[in-house]
Design a protein around this nucleic acid. Structure first.
Lengths: 212, 212, 212, 212
DNA sequence: TATGAATGAGCATTCATTCAT
DNA sequence: GATGAATGAATGCTCATTCAT
């Protein structure tokens, strides 16, 4: 009788305890939400995953809604960091491939299924929508800066509209995640990703060859 | 007291009556689901949209779940038809633009919001997932055939992997719908769509010109 | 399976059915509230008294709070009517005695215990307080008019402040109800009521006798 | 970290400490109960008023119920003392006026609102009811003795039933407290109190003096 | 065919109380 | 003595579904 949320991991009195407990809940809740969806996931189910009472969850989050919001926020941050990390150096194909692999990696915390739960919810919840919009814009900005640099280095044709291209690329990525959820083979998705990006990428090369 | 589902539109005894009533329900339900999401939409709300009793809905559909499934099926069919219609003749950019405009048209029955509700649900419901997968594959097939034809007509480079390209294009389309939901301006989305497709498209043209 | 709230009393389709059902719920709820208090009374308990499901209650009242408010309103109306009825004709002692007996009558719908539940609640709920204040004022008005008439008929001394007297009398009545709840014998309460009122009443008589 | 209940007021080891702590809790709890009612007041809220942990309350009172019972007991004692103090010397009107003013004084610890919370509870809890009955009887006794004395001094007519009168007077007082809660103006209440008592009081005096 | 009253299982949230530290 | 994390039982309310009429 009397488990505690971060069982045997940390003494209940140390200050880190609360943060650790919150994180455990966030993780379990993300898992649960991605398995059964926001509405169908009960607080009871989340508590059971942690072998803890329902009441305990409310010591850390004041409602199911807040729990979900926190998860969404964390996911957005994680996604942005992954993107920044991936685009640190290298060429377009290589970098996007890195991003792609990291996000698609099933061991990753970032759970793709949940993405559509969130988007679905955003289509009716303007606060959430605004949050996602802001984050999405920021990611587009990061990608656009990267592409600009590539352009300067002559790896992308001069006449390319970087704004359009970054939105196009990010859209394709999101779209492939849908394909992934629907059961498209990983190998097909990867081929589409590199193949299509390759087409985009190769054009300037050809163009360059023209200059000869 | 007591409207009936196809109020004065058709005699209740003729066989078409039943179909007509079903369609009215499907339409109201799709609207309701896209406004409030599957779980948050009550049968009561759907019934109220039709000015009909809750019980009446169960005369035509055996459960909320079946109602949703039927809607999904109808949406898939509609989407396929739109695609076929759009690709009937013309060139890539022109055809995809037509498709894009038709689907994005807010007057269209096909409600984009609902798409993510469905995908979200599919991520946990394998029967639904299989249904969507089949339909998605069929659409990819249609697109691939179209692209093949373009290739034969020399409008696409010989070395392009059509399977990858069709998946890439369709993914981009889906991804742009996400952007749309999140509030990206319609004009930006259109620019990304035509811009990126243009890049794909133009390369072979350049390549072709080289061969001369 | 499938009781209905006004079991065998009325067909479910007739329009009076709903009113009848509401009344039954109001009655059961009033009983329950007076037995266990507002907070401690569960909707479940009320439903059980009626041998009905909890959900059924919500077909007639949108919340526990509304149910309580309706009961309070009905009680206020009943009390006013009793007062008006009692003061229709006769002299002070006789009339107030009639009022007293009617309200104290345990067979009466008006449940005294509940009164203090309501007052207690009113001490923190200004909307309820305002409602009670309005009703109380109205009753005071009715009593004052009665006393005025008595005064004109010479049954009450000329120099008596009718406003003060009516508030004093009504307060005494309310105070005796408290005594009743605490277990003071009915006979003692009655003696206090008539005895004290008698003192008030007799004064003018004596005064009158002075005029001889 | 960790205030203790009688913060710096007293060393924790001395025996008085415990009593001091109890009193602080009783005071805070009475305040809380009168603000939000017994059921709606949480132990958490009481603890917060004292800037103390919930658990601490249980070191001094074994349950919420006991806490409430102790408060009730203290209130009864205080009320009796006030009554005795007020009736020590002087005439009826003067004495009762003193009592009235003391109890109604908002700076008084004795919180009127709570009275009805207690009565309400008593209507369903026989142990509490018995307690209140005993105390009430004792107060009636004190008042009766006072009135008897007044009678002997010829200030009250010989034929007055002192038992009835004391109950009547005390009831009127209680009833006026209800009026006070409902928002009757203080001045009206006072007028009713002195006015009605004045009638009781003056009549026999007049009558008596006449008969001589 | 259509109604709408009724059901009953379910769920988020609250809170008095306990107890390891 | 004091804390505060954790419990677990409760409770108001909802809603898909059924069924008598």
């Amino acid at each position: 009788m009397g488990n505690n949320i971060s069982r045997d991991h940390m003494a209940r009195i140390v200050p880190e305890y609360k943060q650790e407990a919150r994180n455990r809940i966030l993780k379990a809740a993300q898992e649960a939400f991605s398995e059964t969806g926001y509405d169908q996931t009960t607080m009871e189910a989340i508590a059971q995953k942690l072998d803890v009472s329902k009441g305990a969850l409310y010591l850390y989050f004041k409602s199911k809604e807040e729990l979900f919001a926190q998860i969404t926020g964390a996911r957005q941050r994680a996604l942005r960091e992954t993107l920044q990390e991936s685009l640190k150096e290298g060429e377009l194909l290589e970098c996007t491939q890195k991003f792609f692999d990291t996000v698609m990696d099933p061991h990753n915390t970032y759970n793709i299924n949940l993405t559509f739960e969130v988007i679905s919810e955003a289509s009716r919840n303007s606060a959430l929508r605004d949050l996602l919009f802001t984050d999405y814009s920021r990611r587009l900005q990061i990608l656009a800066e990267f592409l600009d640099e590539q352009k300067e280095r002559g790896l992308i044709r001069d006449d390319v509209d970087i704004g359009a291209l970054s939105l196009g690329i990010s859209a394709m990525f999101n779209g492939l995640m849908i394909g992934h959820i629907l059961g498209i083979e990983h190998e097909d998705i990867e081929r589409a990703w590199t193949g299509t990006l390759g087409m985009l990428h190769s054009s300037p090369v050809r163009a360059t060859s023209l200059e000869r």
